[in-house]
Amino acid sequence: MKFERYGIGIAKGLRVTIKHLFHHPVTVQYPEQRLNPSRRTRGNELIWDRTKCTGCATCAKTCPQGVIKIITSVSTEENKYVVEKFEVDTGYCIFCGLCVEACPYEALFMGYAYERAKYRRGELVQANEMLGASPERRPSGYMHPEIAAQLPRQTLLLERITEEE
């Protein structure tokens, strides 16, 4: 006679859960402990480099959401377009990164920050100088390997848990 369903499965399960009681938890205490995001993070807020931008508007054409607005004027003495207004409504942006990928002059970057919540809707619409890089608005390495190389290594849960192999 073979006995199989006398509670052995329950006992096995109980063993697994009690073992976990003595393992280290995997969660992170967020405001105190911070993990490094991916080097290619498509984080909040686009970063735009005015010096490199030529006003070609490829980004605006690529954006599937149509959130980039560019107004240019022609400067005759320098014989080029001058960007008068570069406006991004980050409230509509889905952070797909297609604009960064499309920019032929590497003037657009995704943001590396992840704590850029705003209190008002109006603050989501950003233009011109607001879009520049700054210490709290670091560009991420998405589509820019040279930036990615300088960013800190991403923390991986895979490497944090060492107890079980």
């Binding site: 995001p37 991916s38 290619r40 498509r42 990164g97 995704m110 991420s140 998405y142 991403q154 991986l156």
Partner: peptide, 8 residues
Amino acid sequence: DMLDMVSG
């Protein structure tokens, strides 16, 4: 984590 690493 890994997919984030490649795709962002």
